[in-house]
Simulated assay, not measured.
Amino acid sequence: MRMITVDEDRRVTREQGLMLQAVGCVVTNSQATYVSGPITTGNRFSAWYASTGRNFVMGSQEYLLRLTSDVIQPNEKAIHRVASAIRERSSVPVIEPASLAVPDWSQQEYLSFWLRIIQKFVSTIVLVSGWEFSVGCATEFRCASRLGLPILDELGNCVGSQQGEALITAAATRIEQIAEGAAPLIQLAQVLRNHRI
């Protein structure tokens, strides 16, 4: 794992601060609905990696191209679909993570930013189907639970803290079942089980 330098950390903190100000120009505190869905991982990634992704050298150009076409783009479409449906039936601002691309941000930097958005601007979280297979979504769920925010699935059903944790645990178990020794999947399952914000 590459260590982040102090200068990189300052740049990211500044970028995030400016983006938060921009969001604050449109959304008042605790007013928005946030759509949480997997982008780079999730159930789609686990199934893809178990069947296809393990055949490529992780990080290679071919791996990244297939990950983008087979996992990231379909995941982003699912998030956009849910966000569009909410926008059609509500006048509340909807924030979704699939439309933001910041060159050089790590997954941790994205997650840090979205957690700050949730804490400052969000009144309700909507979980895209399969969210429980994503470390980012699980972290966003846990943040929203701690804040006492209403959490809904994409069909509008409430997802309580215990129910959500049970779904995360079941997802980790399912990932372990299909891992067949694949280190990235085993690590994903472990992080889902053990990660807390």
Score class of each variant (00 low, 15 high):
G24C: 07
P74T: 13
G42E: 04
T33R: 11
I95G: 08
T28N: 12
F56S: 03
Q61P: 07
L127S: 00
E88A: 15
S60D: 12
T124Q: 14
F141H: 07
R146G: 14
Q119C: 12
D104Y: 13
L67V: 00
N29G: 11
E96L: 04
T40Y: 03
A138H: 00
R146V: 10
L67A: 09
P38T: 06
C143D: 02
V23C: 03
V94W: 08
L127T: 01
E76D: 08
I86M: 05
Y34H: 01
R81N: 13
W114D: 12
R142T: 09
Q31A: 10
V128Q: 02
V71W: 07
W131V: 04
N43I: 06
R142I: 04
A83L: 05
R44Q: 14
G53K: 08
E140G: 00
M58K: 15
F45H: 10
V26T: 11
S69Y: 14
P74S: 11
I117H: 06
S112M: 05
E62G: 10
S90W: 03
A22W: 15
G42L: 05
I117D: 03
V23Q: 03
Y110H: 11
P103I: 07
E62W: 09
L64F: 07
Q21V: 14
T41F: 05
V92P: 01
Y63K: 00
C143E: 01
A22F: 14
V82E: 15
S51Y: 11
F121V: 00
V26Y: 07
R142Q: 14
V35R: 03
R81W: 13
R87Y: 14
G136E: 10
R54S: 13
R142K: 15
W105N: 06
C143N: 08
L147F: 05
F121H: 06
E88Y: 13
V23W: 08
I117Q: 00
F141A: 04
V102T: 02
A98N: 00
A47I: 11
F121I: 07
N29D: 10
V135A: 11
F121D: 11
I117F: 03
G136P: 05
